[in-house]
Simulated assay, not measured.
Amino acid sequence: MENYKYTLDKTSKKFICPNCNKKSFVLYIDTETDNYLVDNFGRCDRETNCGYHKAPPKARKYFLIPFLCLKNMSDKVVQLTDINGFKFIIPKSQILEQQENGCWVSEWFLKNSTIFYLGNQSKYLNNDELVLVNTVIKRDKPPDLVPSFHSLELLNEMYFEKPHIDNLTTFLKRHFSQHEVFEVIQKYFITGVGHFWKNSTGFWQIDEKNKIHACKIMLYDESTGKRIKKPYNHINWLHKAFKDSEFKLSQSLFGLHLINEDYEKTIAIVESEKTAIIMSILLPDFIWIATGSKQNLKFELLKPLKKREVVLFPDKGEYSVWFERATELNKVGFKITVSKLIEQTNFGDGFDLVDYYLKL
């Protein structure tokens, strides 16, 4: 097992020494999280008059991993489904204890897995006696920044006052009527953007409370309607165009603001923003929403849809992943079904509903 490495705090902050009662005690810190260790692990700076030094013991570290589901697979392993819907097989020997919505997993195992854990709550256990040795407390730090939002005035300025031509809208006009294109542009606030690339398109991520989380910028080919991916993937964000280093991106589903327009309609979810836009023209009986990426099909982003009927339309090759995530989400109250329409076609991986309906 690995010994966790600590170091004495290199800042000027001192605490009361437990031996000499002078404010000369330097605590050890966790070098990964930059947090203090408690239980008087540290060294007194009064080396001549005191010299007290208590180093952290060799210990095993455990992190609390939240889960949607923890399922016994055998007498030796469990299957953990994390809060984003990803599944992991974990040996029971690496789990210290289980709580209602989380379990403590050893750092040794986590370092050799793909489970994200460094920001999670942790504790240390003596290797020999397996009893709690110390806990972690936060150092004095500024509070985390709250998520940032764009203003309605900015959207109004870019959408209404300073419109730009964009290649995606040009493509839409070649396949649909002027009225259909006008309506869908208004519905999703499709915006021509002059930043990064000429004739690029801005996709505003507006939530169900009309808060603007972000504006994703992408470049399309006006003839094919395909995204430009060579010589690199043409994707960026509006806050980066403004060089706003303090903007804290917190994404929302694209089209989420539409769910309040009709409480009876089923929500249809696809991956691509372009696909959601086009399918809202072709099949208007659904409210079409896009995740923007396959990784965004997760609890935090889908939470506003928990009481609605939802149908997922995964791209070709993604059916099994989206089906597994839907299954886990349904266990916590969602009402999600997954369409096999594209998976049953002869299309190659990555094709979606637009390819199916427009035969692009």
Rank of each mutant, 00 (worst) to 15 (best):
R174F: 08
L132E: 15
Y36T: 05
P231H: 10
H257W: 02
L110F: 08
I212M: 12
I16F: 08
C103G: 01
N134C: 15
P147K: 04
A276F: 04
E153M: 13
I278M: 01
L302M: 09
Y357W: 02
I269C: 03
P143G: 09
S113G: 07
F189E: 09
N72S: 14
E318G: 03
G292H: 05
I267Q: 01
R325N: 04
G42E: 00
A290I: 05
M279D: 01
M279E: 00
K335T: 02
K229C: 09
E261P: 03
Y4Q: 11
G119V: 00
T31N: 15
D349P: 09
D349R: 11
T48V: 12
L96D: 14
Y159D: 07
Y188R: 14
A290W: 01
L283T: 02
D34G: 13
K162N: 15
S245K: 13
C44T: 01
F347Q: 04
N236P: 00
K173G: 02
D285H: 14
T201Q: 07
Q251G: 01
T11G: 13
N35P: 07
W104V: 04
E183R: 05
L258V: 10
L8F: 07
K307H: 10
N127L: 15
P56C: 10
H175R: 01
V354L: 05
D82E: 10
P163I: 07
P314L: 03
R227W: 11
K10D: 13
H53D: 09
F15T: 08
K61I: 12
L305D: 03
D352Q: 07
S151I: 12
G51K: 04
F286I: 05
N330Y: 05
L256S: 08
G194R: 13
G51H: 06
E261Q: 11
P147W: 03
V146Q: 10
K248T: 15
K226I: 10
G42M: 03
N156D: 12
N35H: 11
R60G: 10
N21A: 14
K316N: 05
E47I: 09
L132A: 12
I212R: 06
Y319W: 06
T7V: 13
Y62V: 00
I185M: 13
I206P: 00
F160Y: 12
F351R: 01
K359D: 01
W204S: 06
E129V: 13
D349N: 15
E309M: 09
S93Y: 08
